[in-house]
Amino acid sequence: MPTTFAPIHPLHHYQPPSKWLLLAEGRALLEAGTSLALWPLLQAAPRGDGHAVIVLPGLLAGDGSTSLLRKYLANRGYDVHGWGQGRNLGPRRGVEQRMLDQLEAVHDSSGGSVSVVGWSLGGVYARLLAARRPELVRSIVTLGSPFSGGPRDTNAWIVYETVSGKKAEDPERKRLVEPTPGVPTTSIFSRSDGVVAWRCSVERPGPAAENIEVIGSHIGLGAHPAVLFALADRLAQPVDGWKPFRRGLLGPLIYPDPQRYQ
């Protein structure tokens, strides 16, 4: 049975992460180094079936920030694509249409539905793609993505408004992004996230929707060994046989129970 959560009020606001958690984001380097050290062990994750995966970066980041993640997924047997739009400066004019065009092109060239992995703001984009073209999307995995809560529940909202030229409060986009997508959906988050209030990344209950908690930073989520393993496991789920993530015997140490906040 998928983990269930109490409903989150759509107008609820959360306190952004403390300045101490923000300062602790420097541990991302250690998390990436740990993944490299554990690279042989990470090969024990399930292999994929070769379907296409698009990986979307976070705010101010580009495809370089997801290179380790994409290399790992390619190693697991997936047809992996970056987003190809340079730095992610928010939903400027044409950005969302180019993502939709890419989704359609990858779908047509691969001959099947596409999984979308989005880190932070990239995960918000992933949910938007699923809302607009669900018939093209196989599954979604988001990493520390603020798809619920208020517009200022992160430590990045000022940067978002500055580089995108748009207000953080966007009711129309929120209407598309906040509801659980109609495809298998996994939200991976960390309570020690120093950028996004972790409650903004908690998914609502559903027959094919789940949350996976890890212990780590926001900036390091895309290179965290526990995230990489969970991501490979999630993408390996068959189209018609999706099952929730099993935390295993080491769950409390590596994948804490995400429901304990209730």
Rank of each mutant, 00 (worst) to 15 (best):
P2D: 05
P2R: 13
S18R: 15
A24I: 06
G26S: 06
A32W: 05
A32S: 08
L42C: 03
A44T: 10
R47Q: 06
G50N: 04
G50F: 05
L60V: 10
A61I: 06
T66I: 05
N75C: 03
G86D: 14
M99F: 07
L100G: 06
D101S: 14
A105L: 10
H107Y: 14
D108K: 15
D108G: 11
S113F: 02
G118A: 10
L121P: 07
Y125L: 15
R127I: 08
L129A: 08
V137N: 04
L143K: 02
G149T: 03
P151S: 07
T154L: 13
I158G: 02
E161Y: 11
E161N: 07
T162G: 05
V163G: 02
S164C: 08
G165T: 10
K166S: 11
E169I: 07
D170T: 12
K174L: 11
G182Y: 11
P184D: 12
I188A: 03
C200A: 08
S201F: 08
E203H: 08
P205H: 07
A208M: 09
V214W: 04
I215A: 00
G216H: 02
G216Y: 08
G222K: 11
A223C: 13
V227Q: 05
V227G: 03
A230N: 01
L231Y: 00
A232H: 01
D233T: 13
D240W: 09
D240M: 09
G241Q: 14
F245Q: 03
R247W: 05
P252T: 09
L253E: 05
Y261R: 12
